[in-house]
Each structure stands twice: as C-alpha cells, then as structure tokens.
C-alpha cells in the first residue's frame, strides 16, 4: 500500500492503494467514478479510455503510480452538462444502443479532435479502431465525429 495524490476532473484526491493498481480500478472502486468502464483488462477494447494530460490512454493497463502527478480527465469530467461538442454530436446522432462502450468511444473521439480538429475518414477509422462497439454503432460514431469536427470548426 502507498498513498497517492490524484488530479481527476479538476479535483485532488488522496488514495491509499497498491502501487500496481490500474487507475481504472482506482477510479471505479475508490473514487466512485464508474463512467470509465471495464471491458477486457488488456487494453484491447477501449472501454476504459480516459485522458491523461489531454491524451487518450487505456486506464486498465496504467498503474496508479505512473499517473499520480498528472492531470486526469474521465467521462464525468469531459463537460459539466453533456455539452462537449462530442457529447452533443453523440446525442444528435442518437449513437448508443446498449451504451456500455460509449464513454470510451467519446473519450477517444474527443482526444482525436483535440489533436486533429478536422480528421479524414481514414484518420477517424484508424483512431477509433481501438474501441470495440459490440452493438456495431460504428457508422453513427463516425457520423457523430464528423459533426463534432464541423461544429468545432464553426
């Protein structure tokens, strides 16, 4: 056990956990931020995607000891009122079916648009292929990212 200071969604938290604990389980079990999902535990499905210093990472493979001084954003901290351009686009396109993967999809998409405000279809496909949607909503995810991209431009 060791004590870590975490900076999550603009707030500072103290946690006392095993240093090897993935930040996913710290968020879910210790900080009660359950919007970040567990899907595979081996960084293959993308359901656990969060932002560390603004970049998308898979939280299931990232030990808490590696992020204690960094700025973490989870789906709960992406916006106050579901008004991030990506969230708005997700609502506009009515993307979710079961909805379980969507937090991870949205975090990957937000990071993509942050780094590349006007991605091509190919760039969207390449980036988003790390996130599995078992319901198959890929078509709408792509449409929503394009909408969000246009709205950010405007």
């Amino acid at each position: 056990m060791a004590s870590f200071t975490l900076h999550v969604n603009g707030k500072t938290h103290q946690v006392d956990v095993d240093p090897s604990t993935p930040i996913l389980w710290v968020l879910r079990d210790h900080l009660n931020l359950v919007g970040t999902k567990y899907g595979c535990g081996i960084a293959q499905c993308g359901a656990c995607t969060i932002h560390v210093e603004g970049s998308a990472v898979r939280s299931c493979q990232l030990p808490v000891s590696a992020v204690s001084s960094q700025k973490i954003t989870t789906i709960e901290g992406l916006s106050e009122q579901a008004d991030h351009p990506v969230q708005k686009a997700w609502l506009e396109h009515d993307v979710p079916q079961c909805g379980y993967c969507q937090a991870g999809q949205i975090m990957s998409a937000a990071s993509l648009l942050n780094n590349n405000p006007n991605p091509s279809d190919q760039e969207i496909e390449d980036t988003m292929s790390g996130n599995i949607c078992r319901c198959g909503t890929y078509f709408r995810i792509k449409a929503a990212i394009k909408s969000a991209s246009n709205s950010q431009e405007a």
């Binding site: 919007g35 789906i75 937090a103």
Partner: peptide
C-alpha cells in the same frame, strides 16, 4: 437514456 450514457452515469 442517451444523456445519462454520454455523461457516464452509473446505469449498468
């Protein structure tokens, strides 16, 4: 439920 889904509410 879409708004709750895209904001990561504890639904599951």
């Amino acid at each position: 439920d879409a708004k709750n889904i895209v904001t990561g509410k504890p639904l599951f």
